[in-house]
Amino acid sequence: MHPDRPKPDLDAMDRKILAELTADARIPVAELARKVGLSKTPVAARIRALEAGGLITGYRAVLSPIKLGLTHVSFVEVRLSDTRQEALSRFNAAARTIPEIEECYMIAGGFDYLLKVRTRDIADYRQVMGEKISTLPHVSATSTYVAMEAVIEQKAPDLT
């Protein structure tokens, strides 16, 4: 853990509640209370406290990219021609506007960013690469790696 960032003050009950909500965010409070061994009122209060403390940042539906026809996953290494703060900020802002970029990480290493790009197929990916990703601010080079199979995807953090 980073020394400047406080470790969340979670007890075993909070961890149980978070694990259950991670598995099923739509679980009724009464059922959640039964599963963790508390009554509804303290469970609801703990959930509100976890939300207020920023540990729970929201709830969302997890969609199946396969059922949506988005079966092609590529990872793209991006090298920039300029890595000063203004250039990084411009790249970040522009990357956020491309819906096919599912994840984007700034990397310390031999390249500057790693993108996870999800499209329908290789032809769709080629269009996204040519018309969107390669035109992002300060992009000087890219390398693409095509995923053959997702072994682990959207894994929840270990709360123990």
Rank of each mutant, 00 (worst) to 15 (best):
P65Q: 09
E131Q: 15
D82R: 11
I27P: 06
A95W: 00
S74V: 14
D121Q: 09
R126I: 06
L114T: 07
S89F: 03
R26T: 14
G53C: 04
I27K: 15
I107T: 15
A45Y: 01
A150Q: 11
V117H: 02
G69A: 04
I107S: 14
L115V: 04
S89Q: 12
S81A: 09
K35A: 13
K67Y: 07
V117L: 04
E51M: 04
T135V: 08
L136W: 03
A61E: 11
A150L: 13
M148H: 13
L55D: 03
T97K: 15
A147C: 08
T135F: 05
F91L: 00
D24N: 11
R48H: 09
K155E: 15
A44M: 09
V151F: 11
D124S: 14
E103Y: 04
A123E: 12
H72L: 08
L136Y: 00
Q154K: 15
A150P: 04
I98T: 05
C104E: 07
V29C: 10
A23M: 07
A33F: 06
R118L: 05
K132T: 01
D82Y: 05
K35G: 06
T71E: 11
T142Y: 00
Y105T: 12
V128A: 06
E31K: 13
A45L: 08
Y59C: 11
G130Q: 10
M106P: 15
